[in-house]
Simulated scan of single mutants.
Amino acid sequence: MILFYYPGACSIANHIALIEVGMPHKLISINHEKKTEDGRDFLAINPKGYIPALETDEGAVLTENAVILHYIAEKSGRLLPQGGISKWRALEALAFMNSEIHGSYAPFFRNFPEPEKVRAREKLAKAFSILSDQMGSKTFLISDELTIADCYLFWVLMVSGRSGVDLPENLKSGYERLRGLPSVSRALSEEGLLRGNS
């Protein structure tokens, strides 16, 4: 299985999940010219042109973060409760972060005018408040067990500083807990994101 990624991008959620479940995989990075590190045209692999993309052992290419995370959970039988409302809460949180938070980061990754950044900050502050309420005093977002929602949450919180929005205290603590997981440390190291690696 091959994960096409860009260091520090949202694809790190998939990278963390693959490590966490022990699924064998190869990493291939993509550059801004849409070329893979081994010189291939990434658009031939994923015509959408963005990461993440996961090439399965069967040769199919999956895209979209939430779908890849769900695929990893289904294939491994881990990181997603097998039944009950917790399964749906994890998927709900994943969809919420993908639609309401990820998209709201756009003004801070590109040169958007300040009024759009102000609107995005307001939306992000509200979204972080909702996630904070959902997490409460639990170890992870959905429960005391790590799920695919937490893999994505790590990236959401990792890049939150670009927006200038203060995180609620329990999300700050949750980020530090996630950062301390061996799977997260390994993903950061493999992507060259640990201090001293960049």
Rank of each mutant, 00 (worst) to 15 (best):
95 A>E: 15
160 S>M: 09
194 L>S: 14
197 N>A: 12
172 K>V: 12
195 R>M: 13
100 E>L: 01
30 I>R: 12
20 E>A: 14
132 S>M: 06
175 Y>A: 03
141 L>S: 03
175 Y>K: 14
128 F>P: 00
8 G>E: 07
157 L>Q: 09
5 Y>K: 07
112 F>G: 05
184 V>E: 15
61 V>C: 05
160 S>Q: 06
121 R>Q: 14
35 K>H: 13
121 R>L: 05
194 L>A: 14
119 R>P: 01
194 L>W: 08
131 L>P: 03
95 A>N: 13
73 A>R: 09
109 F>W: 14
18 L>A: 04
101 I>E: 10
182 P>G: 00
135 M>C: 12
125 A>G: 07
60 A>P: 00
94 L>F: 11
154 F>V: 07
43 L>H: 11
186 R>S: 14
60 A>I: 06
151 C>D: 07
117 K>N: 02
147 T>I: 11
113 P>R: 03
80 L>S: 07
90 A>T: 09
114 E>L: 03
111 N>P: 01
14 N>Y: 00
129 S>F: 02
107 P>L: 04
126 K>F: 11
75 K>C: 09
20 E>I: 00
196 G>E: 08
53 A>T: 05
105 Y>Q: 04
8 G>H: 06
63 T>N: 09
106 A>L: 13
14 N>C: 15
192 G>F: 09
85 I>A: 12
191 E>T: 07
100 E>D: 15
